[in-house]
């Protein structure tokens, strides 16, 4: 028997076997050799459901809003702060409900709180969320009712410092998996999540603040939307062939929708957001919807990527060939 080594290029080329009816090329031995086991996936698809991408969005909104709220406080925009703090608190408050509801054994959620484990982004995230929620209760009470006059400023600072972590740790969490479209995007995913959080927080503030103080939120929404679009484009470009899930199926459709809504929303905010209330409201809602859809797209892409054995095998073969 002649041993034939396959190049990495062949692996990604055809899921069922290269060389069938090879246009004039000399046919090598073992033409029907499978590149996968009956086309089955190598790794398992995640078992997470709708709560998780919802949480990605809501958690991002909470984290971004905490940063925005502190800045509004220190820059003398009380009307913005009085809205951004409750937004941050409310979205942090629904987060545990979403996360617990997704557990296979919801009644055992407290087992997360029995350990702090640095090698598990989910454990780290649990503590970030716990810390931010706690700080936020005090921060919001202080902002709305003037309670906790001494503890208030510390809580606000603590919430604003944990905010960026809450916005980005979810990217760390999915990047630390064997799912190719997530793991291979580990250098870009945190930026997509951070920018998307900024856009959400800005849009929520622009939506809720009185016209006189809506400028900060509006500008942040436009800036975040631009960053989100740029970061996700960069992610898809660097993923190369691995970006296929963002072009096909559910994730592909959601990705297009997210980009469309984000760009349209930012455009409306930029052109009509300052003068016309309808433009501000419509643009803000579109940016918010775009950010939520972006997380859904990334979430769904992971399932499509895990399902495809070539997504797993292709880059690994390439790595072996280059080592």
């Amino acid at each position: 028997m002649t041993e034939v080594r396959r190049g990495p290029g062949q692996v990604g080329a055809s899921p069922t076997g290269a060389g069938k009816g090879g246009r004039g090329e000399r046919r090598m031995v073992e033409p029907d050799r499978p590149r996968s086991y009956y086309g089955r996936s190598v790794i398992k698809e995640p078992v997470w459901s709708w709560e998780i991408p919802t949480y990605f969005f809501v958690g991002g909104l909470s984290g971004g809003s905490a940063v925005l709220a502190l800045l509004a406080d220190v820059s003398g925009r009380p009307e913005v702060a009085r809205r951004a703090w409750p937004v941050s608190l409310a979205s942090a408050a629904v987060s545990p409900a979403l996360l617990i509801s997704d557990l296979g054994r919801p009644e055992r959620f407290y087992n997360m709180l029995r350990v702090a484990k640095a090698t598990s982004p989910m454990s780290t995230g649990t503590w970030i969320l716990t810390g931010l929620s706690g700080s936020n209760v005090v921060a919001t009470a202080n902002s709305l009712f003037g309670w906790f006059p001494r503890l208030g400023p510390f809580s606000k600072l603590s919430a604003a410092l944990l905010g960026p972590l809450l916005s980005t740790y979810t990217a760390v969490l999915i990047a630390d998996t064997a799912v190719p479209v997530w793991h291979e995007a580990r250098r870009e995913l945190p930026f997509v999540f951070a920018a998307s959080s900024a856009a959400s927080a800005g849009a929520a503030a622009a939506l809720l603040s009185p016209r006189s103080q809506a400028g900060l939120g509006r500008r942040l929404a436009i800036l975040g939307a631009a960053g989100e679009t740029a970061a996700s484009r960069l992610m898809e470009r660097r993923l190369g062939t691995l970006a296929a899930p963002y072009r096909t199926g559910t994730a592909g459709r959601l990705s297009k929708l997210a980009t469309g809504m984000t760009i349209a929303g930012a455009g409306i905010l930029a052109v009509a957001g300052r003068r016309r209330p309808a433009g501000r409201v419509g643009g803000s809602l579109l940016v918010l919807a775009g950010a939520a859809t972006e997380r859904w797209s990334i979430f769904k892409a992971g399932f499509q990527s895990a399902r495809d054995p070539q997504q797993t095998v292709g880059p690994q073969r390439e790595r072996l060939a280059n080592s």
Binding site: G64, V67, L165, S167, A171, R186, P190, A194, A198, L220
Partner: peptide, 23 residues
Amino acid sequence: TTRDLTEIWQTAALAGAMLVAGS
């Protein structure tokens, strides 16, 4: 993939800093 976790957290910290900078 936990081998890359330190690097991923560094990226996340940078992204978090950019969120603050953007704000």
